[in-house]
Design a protein around this nucleic acid. Structure first.
Lengths: 227, 227
DNA sequence: GTCTATACCCTGATAGAC
DNA sequence: GTCTATCAGGGTATAGAC
């Protein structure tokens, strides 16, 4: 199911209670599902899955609590939709980023930059995706962990390739791949859109840091360069 | 209050339902508060604050739900104790690590290594400390954010000093300090004690990564070194 | 300090009319 | 597809005996 509706709500901006109709009434709806998902993302991100009530979510959309169950069988199913689609969007992003470049260093840069910027720009989805895994049903957890492994695989592949070409010097590709992704992921935890740095700036900075972390260092210079 | 009892439970190992008495009976107690805190850390870390019931916590210690309220005025107060003391322990650790070294590079290395290893070793406390801030009362949130700023200050100071001495080359000390800490903090989210790397190993790896991220690069060598 | 019993509220989810 | 009304269950916290 997540695949069918995949990414339908993935790239909307951040417009919480957008209600073009004026009233909180039906608003010539048809897209209640989508609006419920958006409201749930906000609520789950701000308060957490368990602290959020179905009333919270429904009310934000201007619906009664009961209406939610026409679109989703349970509160948990709503979370699953968000988590699965969110993970798939992240994987898709990473794969497309990697494909825009050829060298392993450039590929890593692009992946880290875009992955990081995504975690800032869409920090609410990202928070839900990364912090509410324990609240998912086992079967959904497995699906999500599968996607994660694929994302890690893309990054680790660049590190291995970089080692092979001599452009990188990464002793433990597995651990460093995890560290790089962890660094990007955690942006979603602390990012505040009112902060002074834009999502794109953070992405660029993190791409630089990643490059520094993995690049082969040139042999030490003769000595006595800087004072 | 957190200061009085500070760190009393901070460096215990990970022994969940340790009950030397045998039965789940009173166990010649006296330290029920401490045991409740330990149980709460486990539960909050595994399921989250809101998903944890006071019954959960009390039962793990072999007490009735009501007994909890003799030691803590509310479930939230329990969380506050954990969060405040946990933050103070982290700050204490960072300050003592920094004090063991003199140069800014060595100081940064020591701080990152110990801070990271702590987040792995005590990943349950760390998870609670970092992921349940929103569940704290406003006043406790402020206290905790204060401590955070101090920790960031210690790291940023090393970056500034390193820039000044020429050993480092960090364009945005604020952002990089945050990134470094973020990297360490996120270890608590994914760390699994059954994994193949020890907390100390991860600490060492992260200290290396941090060094690479901030070190001034020597001027490019003549060319044609590596093939 | 701990227990049993329980008050009281809120939550997720359902029933049935429209 | 949405509403109103409501149920059944479980949550935090308290009362009062021991």
């Amino acid at each position: 199911m997540a695949t069918r509706s995949a990414m339908s709500w993935t790239d909307d901006g951040d417009e919480p209670n957008d209600d073009p109709g004026g009233e909180a009434a039906p608003t010539r709806s048809g897209d209640s599902s989508r609006r419920l998902i958006e409201a749930a993302i906000e609520a789950f991100a701000d308060r957490g899955f368990h602290a959020t009530t179905t009333r919270d979510i429904a009310t934000r959309v201007g619906l009664s609590p009961a209406a939610l169950y026409v679109h989703f069988p349970s509160k948990q199913a709503l979370l699953a939709e968000i988590s699965v689609v969110g993970h798939e969007a992240a994987l898709d992003l990473v794969e497309r980023s990697a494909a825009t470049q050829t060298g392993s260093v450039d590929r890593l840069r692009a992946v880290i930059r875009d992955f990081t910027a995504w975690h800032a720009e869409r920090y609410r989805v990202a928070r839900v995706v990364h912090h509410e895994i324990a609240a998912l049903a086992d079967t959904d957890q497995s699906r999500v962990l599968d996607v994660r492994r694929k994302i890690e695989g893309v990054v680790e592949a660049q590190l291995s390739a970089g080692n092979a070409s001599g452009e990188m010097d990464v002793p433990d590709t597995r651990a460093v791949a995890r560290a790089l992704l962890s660094l990007s992921v955690d942006v979603a935890r602390w990012y505040d859109p009112r902060g002074s740095r834009t999502a794109a700036q953070i992405g660029d900075l993190y791409a630089d840091l990643a490059t520094r972390m993995v690049s082969a260092r040139p042999p030490a210079p003769p000595e006595g360069e800087r004072t």
